[in-house]
Amino acid sequence: MRLIGWWARRVASAAATLTLVSILIFAASRLMPGGFAEVVLGPFATPEQQAEVSARYGLDRGVVEQYGLWLAAVLRGDLGTSMISGEPVTVEFLLRMPVTVELTLLGVAAAAVIGVPLGIVTAVRAGGRGGAAGRLAGGIGVSVPEFVLGSLVVFVFSRFALGLTIGGYRPLDEDVGANLRSIVLPAAVLAFFAVAVTARTTRDAVMGVLVEPYITAAVARGDSPFTIVVRHVLRNAAMPVLVVLTTITAYLLGGAVIVEYLFNLPGVGSYVVAAVGRRDYAVVQAGVLLAAAVFVVLNMLVDAATGVLDPRLGSAGEAR
């Protein structure tokens, strides 16, 4: 019963969060200067022409009524229809989702494969050169904005023939080699930040575990450093790392906009950015709501996994 109550509270909290997000994005899209009719028809359209376009897409109705109709459609699984292409938004997203998912998977894989070991080494060798180098790399990775690094990469690889392409994305099922050549650079730009954040989080978590009494006892027993790290450190430091990897996954799925735009990738992020400029309300609202839903769901799964990894936290959560 406690588990059912916990899930009920989490689901209710998630529903309230997504409802608030839907209200905010709906209001923000309508408050943008220049409506859909003005953008589509241009500055020389007559008021009669603008009114006709608004009536055609239901934009002449009250804002509350528009929101209610849109929310009811979303609850039925209908994200709406693009006012530009006339295609269902769900279909448009599904066509572009493989690009965003591929970028995200490569970024998260790099964070796990590079960031976690780097954080462990930095923590274990905190007093040596390895620790200083790891802290410096982490600081640079967190500090450099994606658009700065991405712009630099685009300039260098556009100016010099280095074997990797800028733009010209090819799906993985069409040409594996061309796909990798076009996706490696944007994935590396995304992974730069992800690796740095993961390394710093892993370092802090591991250093927090290394001062525990059971680590001192393991050292006194004569256990090797490798055994101590594998048996005692990794599991106890796993929860913060799991949380940050999940957060990075949600961030990359919903926040790869800049990288997709810079590298001209036909992903969901670049599609939503283009929709903002065209005032394609249905696409913008669905894109933001989908990103929020992914973030909320992944956080719920992390909370559940945390209780499995450390039953003490699960018991504390149930008590609260």
Rank of each mutant, 00 (worst) to 15 (best):
G130H: 02
V184D: 00
V89Q: 11
L253A: 10
V209P: 09
L79C: 06
R30L: 00
V308D: 09
A191F: 00
A73R: 14
R96V: 10
G77C: 09
S151F: 05
R10W: 08
R159K: 11
P88Y: 11
E174S: 07
A8R: 15
D223K: 02
R320G: 14
A238S: 15
G119P: 11
G255S: 01
V121M: 13
A110Y: 08
N179T: 03
A14W: 12
R129D: 00
G62Y: 01
I228T: 09
A133R: 05
Y169D: 12
T81G: 10
D175L: 02
M83Y: 10
T198L: 00
Y67N: 06
S82V: 04
V116Q: 04
S29Q: 07
T90N: 13
M239H: 04
G167L: 11
A275R: 07
L103E: 02
R56F: 00
T46M: 00
Y214A: 07
G119T: 12
Q66C: 03
P225I: 03
L103Y: 02
T165I: 09
V144T: 07
S151H: 07
L265I: 05
P117Y: 09
L172F: 12
V101T: 05
A133I: 11
E212N: 14
D280Y: 10
I4P: 00
A137V: 05
F193V: 09
R9D: 14
L95N: 13
T216A: 13
A218M: 02
F157A: 12
A73D: 15
A199Q: 09
R200C: 03
A293G: 08
V74K: 04
F226R: 15
A199F: 01
T202S: 06
T246A: 15
L79W: 12
R231A: 05
A133K: 03
F36P: 10
A12K: 13
A220S: 09
A161R: 09
A123R: 12
R278F: 01
A178S: 11
E38W: 04
G62C: 01
A196P: 01
A205T: 15
V91G: 11
V302E: 08
T201W: 02
A178Q: 10
V283Y: 05
A15H: 06
L41G: 10
A250Q: 05
P145L: 13
Q285A: 07
V189K: 12
G167C: 08
E65H: 01
T246R: 10
A291W: 01
D204F: 10
P98C: 03
Q50H: 04
A110D: 03
V297F: 13
E65D: 08
V156G: 07
E87C: 03
F192P: 08
M83G: 11
L290V: 15
A304V: 10
G177L: 05
G131H: 03
A205G: 14
V156L: 14
G130M: 01
V259T: 12
A132P: 01
Y169E: 11
W7C: 15
